[in-house]
């Protein structure tokens, strides 16, 4: 193996493993792309790197500048790691109800954390970041939800890697957060083979977030709208906290120690296959967006399931 110049060169090119042992139909394969293998620990390293590098190239991010972003954790961690290496100060607006490990990792990389009320969720953190960015035009605000470099990271990285490693793919299933992964990979795979089905998984956050005062505080990421997500996607499913935890646990049967959002994605894949909606011979590619390390404090693997589910309903894990 080569000696890499920088940890940032280790972003992407993540391995895919067969997880067919979890498939309810022996004639349908499941593969899992392990994004927790990225150096910052999640798929968000890809978007973080692309957004920073594109902004350095076009001059919107200058040496020594302050970077501000809102995040439920993973994008913040990725940006914090890269910012530390490149000499930028990094501020992140973070909902109070993320797992303690997400907060600790941001601190590891020297991020300055600006708390936002947990009851407002990610939408509230983003609104606060927008106000701060408007007040500080000298800061660079990547705005991951509407930054084309986020989608591009997946169109040029994650998508081609999946096609290279698994051209038999018939279904692609990933979590919907900023829409970056789904739009970028979804478009790339459909450009190679129109028949590939792209399915989004999301948690029922709106049932849990009580700080949303008005429906107009709802938010559809510009990444989703600009890439015509409504037509690009073939389906969109909710996976509830209980199934997410159950499948986060089941993933360990195939040696995958992944975060709760990955459990949700696997639960969605298994449901789709179990309902006979993937024909025999199908190959379902799933994205395991991060590793399990950041969720140990939730007791996700070992605690009594009812308690863990109740805890999961109070934290943001997407």
């Amino acid at each position: 193996m080569p000696i890499y110049d920088s940890v940032l060169d280790l972003i992407g090119n993540t391995p895919m493993v067969d997880a067919s042992a979890l498939s309810p139909n022996p004639r349908v394969r499941i593969t899992a792309k392990l994004e927790g293998q990225n150096p910052g620990g999640s798929i968000k390293d890809r978007a973080g790197k692309y957004m920073i590098e594109e902004a350095e190239k076009d001059g919107s991010l200058k040496p020594g500048q302050v970077i501000l972003e809102s995040s439920s954790g993973n994008t913040g961690i990725a940006l914090a790691m890269i910012a530390r290496m490149r000499g930028y100060r990094f501020k992140v607006v973070l909902p109070e109800n993320v797992s303690i490990e997400r907060r600790q990792l941001l601190e590891v990389w020297g991020a300055e954390i600006i708390d936002s009320p947990g009851s407002e969720g990610s939408n509230g953190a983003m609104e606060r970041a927008k106000v701060l960015a408007a007040d500080h035009p000298d800061w660079w605000f990547p705005f991951q939800y509407g930054n084309p470099a986020n989608v591009k990271a997946h169109y040029e990285g994650t998508g081609p890697e999946i096609w290279r490693d698994c051209p038999e793919v018939t279904h692609f299933i990933a979590g919907l957060g900023t829409a970056g992964t789904l739009m970028g990979v979804g478009q790339f795979l459909k450009d190679q083979n129109r028949a590939v089905k792209v399915i989004a998984i999301e948690p029922p956050v709106g049932e849990m977030v009580d700080g949303l005062k008005n429906i107009d505080a709802g938010f559809v990421p510009p990444n989703f709208v600009d890439n015509d997500g409504e037509h690009l996607l073939d389906g969109r499913m909710i996976v509830r906290p209980r199934e997410s935890i159950e499948w986060t646990r089941r993933l360990t049967e195939v040696g995958i120690f992944a975060g709760i959002a990955s459990g949700a994605v696997m639960a969605g894949a298994v449901k789709l296959i179990g309902e006979g909606r993937v024909p025999d011979g199908g190959v379902v590619v799933t994205v395991m967006s991060d590793g399990g390390w950041k969720y140990l404090s939730t007791g996700a693997w070992t605690g009594p399931i009812d308690e863990v589910v109740a805890r999961a309903e109070r934290i943001i894990y997407f």
């Binding site: 990610s122 029922p204 956050v205 709106g206 977030v209 389906g235």
Partner: peptide
């Protein structure tokens, strides 16, 4: 992604209404 407002429902189905929320 089904038949929008024309999607047929069956007795006992569960309908969920959720505001759009982002992650990341």
């Amino acid at each position: 992604y089904l038949q929008k407002l024309d999607t047929p429902v069956k007795e006992g189905d569960q309908v969920s209404i959720l505001p759009a929320v982002a992650g990341g």
